[in-house]
Design a protein around this nucleic acid. Structure first.
Length: 299
DNA sequence: TTTACCACCTGCGGGC
DNA sequence: TGCCCGCAGGTGGTAA
């Protein structure tokens, strides 16, 4: 579920209680999430000070004073809650109000900042791993990630170069984390609609052979429009605290509200919001994923 | 090498 | 009311 804006919202929620604080207690309540926890997972976390909390694509990365990095991915249904520890509880015990979902509270941290952090993930597609910072760039999970869509590196020329020669659909290319890291199904649908580009368009049409440039191709106006739309939709979503469909909540438990700004996603059968268009939003399955689009204004 | 598809796990909503 | 089925926002692995 969580795409870049949701992960960034979570990062901003965790930062005040994690950065500069020591992990007094860490607890993994089951042997695995998507992957088995490392045998020394808890030992490498407990007693460590979190010196920084960053994000790379959809990964949260907590820098530890030991030189390790705690890598966290929310998968499709992962969420963090920040709660006040129960003063009556013994040190090392986690007492907090349990909801019906609490059977899926898989990882807990007690921080010296006075907060307990609970990671909940019903579908267990999320994962956590501790990696030494010095070998981080060799980490298979991170090694092949493309540029950050909101970073300076990502522009129309770079996107055009990445799509050059690709015969797959533009939608599939944008979901490929090697092309651009952090987009998921929702924001790809929204960005394509805002840039009036069809999800069925061949990815290579973003680049035109010809004028000399690094990489041998020039970005088309389509590529420029698409990059601009990606920037707009991600920035707006971050400001709104992400989108809350089914699972995603902020660390405070509040819902994001960007779903109210969707122009196509989950709007099958409704009228297109593009001024003067009047088309109807359609849905079809593309690479096993739902695509929402307007055939009238997306070409 | 590139592309498409499947599986992973659980909860929810719709249909019967 | 309860059961069954399809679907869901991600991603690694595998087959073509």
């Amino acid at each position: 579920m969580p795409e870049l804006p949701e992960v960034e919202t979570v990062r901003r929620g965790l930062q005040p209680v994690m950065e500069g604080a020591k992990i007094l207690v860490a607890e993994a309540r089951r042997p695995d999430l998507r992957f088995p926890f490392q045998p020394d997972f808890v030992a490498r976390l407990q007693g460590q000070v979190v010196t920084g909390l960053g994000r790379r694509a959809k990964y949260l990365m907590a820098d530890l004073a030991s030189g390790d990095v705690l890598l966290m991915h929310l998968g499709m249904s992962g969420s963090f809650r920040v709660i006040k520890p129960d003063n009556e509880a013994a040190p090392g015990e986690f007492h907090y109000p349990r909801g019906k979902d609490s059977t899926h509270d898989h990882v807990l941290f007690r921080m010296s900042s006075g907060a307990d952090i609970v990671f909940n993930d019903p579908r267990r597609f999320g994962y956590m791993k501790v990696i030494a910072r010095k070998v981080l760039e060799d980490e298979p999970l991170l090694r092949d990630l493309g540029p950050e869509p909101l970073g300076n590196e990502f522009d129309a020329a770079m996107l055009a170069r990445s799509c050059e020669g690709k015969t797959t659909s533009l939608k599939a290319a944008l979901l490929d984390q090697r092309v651009v890291a952090g987009l998921g199904n929702i924001y790809v649908c929204e960005a394509l609609h805002r840039s009036h580009l069809s999800p069925r368009r061949i990815a290579a049409t973003l680049a035109t052979k010809g004028r000399k440039s690094v990489g041998g191709s020039e970005p088309t106006d389509h590529a420029k429009r698409l990059v601009s739309a990606i920037h707009t939709v991600l920035n707006d979503a971050i400001k709104a605290g992400g989108s809350s469909l089914r699972d995603h909540r902020q660390t405070s438990g509040e819902l994001g509200y960007f779903q109210h700004s969707f122009k196509v996603y989950d709007r099958e059968g409704e009228t297109c919001k593009t001024p003067g268009c009047g088309g109807t939003i359609k849905r079809f399955t593309q690479n096993g994923r739902s695509t929402f689009w307007c055939a009238k204004c997306q070409k």
